[in-house]
Amino acid sequence: MPRGDLAGLVAAFGAALHDAGLPVGPDRGERFARAVTLLAPTTTAELHRCARATLTCHPEQFEILDRVFDAVFRGYADDPADFRGDPNATGTSTTTRSGGFSSAGPSSESPSSSQAPAREVEIPVATVGSAAERLASRDFATLTPEELAALQDLMRRLAVATPPRRTRRMRARPLGAAVDLRATLRRARRSGGHPVRLMRREPRLRPRRLVALCDISGSMEPYARAMLQLLYCAAGTSHAEVFTFATRLTRLTKVLARTRPAVALARAGQAAPDWSGGTRIGAALKAFNDGYGRRGMARGAIVLIVSDGWETGDPAQVGVEMARLSRLAHRIVWVNPRTQSPRYRPLVGGMAAAWPYCDAVVSAHSLTALDPLLAALEGHSRRT
C-alpha cells in the first residue's frame, strides 16, 4: 500500500468495504479518518481497532471488515487473530515493507518459537491530514478562492452562537417567576373554581441578532471573504445581517440567502461596487447607524466588525459613530488580523478611535484562530 494522503486512503478503504457489502458511507469514513488522526496508530493492531470502532455497528460485520482490512493493509490474508490479540492464535509475525506501509506475514514455526510470546510489530502508518485540515492553520490572506472554498466543510462544524435575550412572549414554566392568571383560572374549573394550583410562566429566550460589517478594501478582501463564508456555513444568513463597506455601505443579507457559498460570494462581489476599494470606516458606520442601527437592527444585537482599522477619512468620526453604536448594541466584537502579531499596538487612527468601544478584539486570521472569535460572540457580559 503506497504512502499517500489520508483522505484518499480512507476513501479507497471505504469503497472496498462498500463493495464487500458493508454499509460504509462518508460519515463513517470521516469518523475513521478523525480517529486515525487523533490516535496516530503505529501498529496494524491499533489501526484495526480504529477501523472496528468507527466503521462497524454490529459484531456480524467484523468478518467483512477483517477480510477487507487484510487485503488493503496486509497485502495478503494471514490469520486475523495474529493482530486482533486472540490468545488462541499461534505463530509470530515478521515485518515486510511495501512502499512505506508495513505488512505482517506468517513465519515458520520452530520448537523454540512456539513457546515464545507473540511479539507486536511496530508498523508506521501514514497520518497525513486531509487537504482542508492542512489549510486550517494557514492565514486567510495566503489562500486562493479554491483553497478557501475547500474549508467549507470544516466551517460547517463550527457553531456561531450568540447569547440569549428575553422576549415579550411568555411560555409556561412550573418554576417561573410570574403567575399566569388566565391559565390558573382555566385550571381552577377542574376543582370547582378553587385555584388549587398556581400556573406560572416566564419570558421566552431567543438568540440575539448577529450583525456583521465586513471591510472589503484591498487589504481586507481575503479576510472579508473568509468571514462571509463563515457566516454562511456556520450561522446561516437567516440568523445574521451582513453588510460590507469600503467607500460605501452595502447590505448583502438577501444576496447571501438560499444559495451555495461560491455563488453567494460571487453575488456579493457584484452587489458591492466598492469591492477592493479604499476604506472609510467612519462614513460606513454613520450610514449603518442612521439607516439601520437606530431603527432597531443594532438594538441589543451582537455587532461583528471585520477591519484592520485603516481609515482614509477622519478618525474622529470613527470614535463618534462607535460611541453611538455601543449605546445600541449588546456587544461589539472587532476582528483585526493584524493583532495576531504580539507587537501590534492600536496606533492607527481608525483602530485607535474604535478600540475603547470594543468588547473584544481578536485576529481570526485562520481557521484555527476562529475559536477566540466564537467565544467572543457568545460572551454575555460587556467589557468594563
Rank of each mutant, 00 (worst) to 15 (best):
R182T: 05
R165Q: 11
T184W: 12
L158N: 05
Y223C: 04
E146A: 14
Y223I: 05
T144F: 13
R206P: 00
E202F: 01
R134C: 04
G129M: 01
G129D: 08
A132S: 14
L154A: 14
P195H: 14
G218M: 10
S191M: 00
T142W: 01
A226D: 05
A149R: 13
A172D: 03
R134A: 11
Y223R: 02
L151D: 05
T184L: 10
G192P: 02
A224H: 07
L213A: 08
R119M: 10
A118M: 06
R206D: 11
Q115G: 10
P203N: 03
L210W: 03
R165M: 07
V125Y: 15
L148K: 11
C214W: 01
A172M: 04
L135I: 07
T127A: 09
L143H: 14
P195N: 15
R171I: 03
R204D: 03
R138T: 05
R187V: 00
A159M: 09
R200Y: 09
Q115T: 08
S217K: 05
T162N: 05
V121H: 08
G129Q: 04
V160W: 15
D180V: 03
L213T: 02
V160R: 12
E122P: 02
P124V: 12
R165L: 06
P145L: 11
A172P: 03
A161Y: 00
R186C: 02
L185F: 13
P163T: 08
D180K: 04
M170F: 04
E146L: 09
A136V: 04
E221K: 04
L175E: 08
T162A: 08
G176T: 06
R134L: 12
V179S: 04
A183S: 11
L154K: 12
R197S: 12
R200D: 02
A161V: 15
T144L: 15
Y223D: 04
A149S: 13
E133W: 10
F140P: 03
P145R: 14
R173D: 10
R182K: 13
V128I: 09
S191E: 06
M170R: 15
P174C: 04
E133S: 09
L205M: 14
M220H: 00
R156V: 07
L143Q: 12
E120Y: 02
R138C: 10
E120D: 12
T142G: 04
R171A: 08
A131T: 10
P117R: 07
L213V: 12
P203E: 08
L135Q: 09
P174S: 07
P195L: 13
R165P: 00
R173P: 00
A183M: 06
R190D: 13
R200E: 03
T127S: 08
D139C: 07
L148W: 12
R197K: 09
P117E: 05
P207S: 12
G218C: 02
R208G: 01
E146H: 14
